[in-house]
């Protein structure tokens, strides 16, 4: 890999100052970035290692369900937080579904949200695809089994993060810091961008110099149930072929309010508003769940090799709703 300068700042402010330099890149757990470096997908002049201060990052959970997670919290810490697992099983389940135990001990929440796509055309250095400044998304006419069925075009990547759909289902916001501007908070749902909307070379609204510092989940009054159901081609460790994140406020046997977010099927976490409309105010059995699945996938536009993601995602919605309803 190209030689680079490694900075080891001790504070966030120091890091933000260092990140002002062009082509300075933040380094957290390194589980994605180091691979990108070694495979020559990126060649930054400087790395700014965040771990000098991220070690202090915490998970803070309030009685009303409000939650703050520092960007440096590891995926393993999310997975093993007992109280969190009771209050928001969706997060523990999402965390546990990620990569391997070894990787989870290093990978951070901030890095997980900001990781780059896994599309095998993108990851092959020799293929200069749209995501790398080329003119074509090779998956479109190629091996697109793992690519998007929703929100695709002109790039058909799927967003790789499992934490993202789970956190969007909890209506989370990200806190963003930079040297130039005041801290800002952005809804995670609008943090991620579609290739057609924004810069096709990026997956989110961050601009150089900015850092994700925390994720905040607002208070959730009432009886909330949540779950993350991820389907991997290889159970042992793999990315999602499809995933369903659901958070629902229950009123007796009925769903009073619900957020349904799909992972692994779109370039960003995909809010399935159609399914939410079907479910709201209903007691959920398999028939209603199938109706919700149909609504969620109504707009799907599969490529040549990924139409299976439609029945798959519908199936996962049925299974996830059984968990929400305590039927599985």
């Amino acid at each position: 890999m190209k030689t680079f300068e490694l900075h080891l700042p001790k504070t966030l402010d120091e890091a933000l100052a260092l990140l002002e330099a062009p082509a300075a890149t933040p380094l957290a757990g390194g589980q994605d970035l180091l691979t990108e470096l070694k495979e020559h997908l990126v060649a930054p002049d400087a790395l700014v290692d965040l771990r000098g201060f991220q070690g202090a990052d915490k998970i803070e959970l309030a009685a009303d369900g409000a939650l703050s997670i520092g960007a440096g919290v590891t995926v393993a810490a999310l997975e093993h937080h007992a109280e969190l697992a009771r209050r928001w099983p969706i997060l523990a389940e999402a965390a546990a579904s990620i990569a391997s135990p070894q990787i989870r001990t290093q990978a951070t929440v901030g890095g997980n949200l900001c990781q780059r796509p896994r599309c095998w055309y993108y990851r092959n250095e020799a293929l200069v695809c749209l995501k790398k400044g080329g003119t074509e998304c090779f998956s479109y006419g190629g091996h697109n089994k793992y690519n998007a069925i929703l929100g695709g075009g002109p790039s058909y990547i799927v967003h790789p993060s499992d934490l993202a759909p789970a956190l969007v289902a909890l209506d989370a916001e990200v806190e963003i810091a930079s040297k130039k501007a005041a801290r800002r908070r952005v809804k995670l749902a609008s943090f991620f961008t579609l290739p057609a909307e924004g810069d096709v070379l990026r997956e989110n609204v961050l601009v150089p110099g900015e850092l994700v510092t925390a994720v905040h989940v607002p208070a959730h009054a009432g009886n909330w149930k949540s779950t993350y159901l991820k389907f991997k081609e290889r159970s042992s460790f793999d990315w999602a072929l499809s995933a369903v994140a659901i958070a629902a406020r229950m009123d007796g046997g009925k769903i009073a309010e619900v957020r349904v977010v799909l992972g692994g099927v779109a370039p960003r976490p995909w809010r399935a508003s159609g399914a939410e409309r079907v479910l709201t105010g209903r007691a959920v059995d398999d028939a209603v769940a199938r109706e919700a699945g149909d609504a969620a996938l109504a707009g799907a536009e599969p490529l040549s090799g990924n139409a299976y993601k439609i029945p798959l995602t519908k199936g996962l919605i049925v299974k996830a709703l059984r968990r929400i309803g305590g039927r599985a």
Partner: peptide, 29 residues
């Protein structure tokens, strides 16, 4: 259930010459 070499006939490339894309059964299988 899993193993398969994937080649890209249009571009003349190998898509899974690594253990991420070339999937081998693990403990959970």
């Amino acid at each position: 259930l899993l193993e398969e070499r994937v080649l890209e006939p249009a571009l003349g490339a190998a898509l899974n010459a690594d253990f991420e894309g070339y999937k081998i059964a693990g403990t959970l299988e």
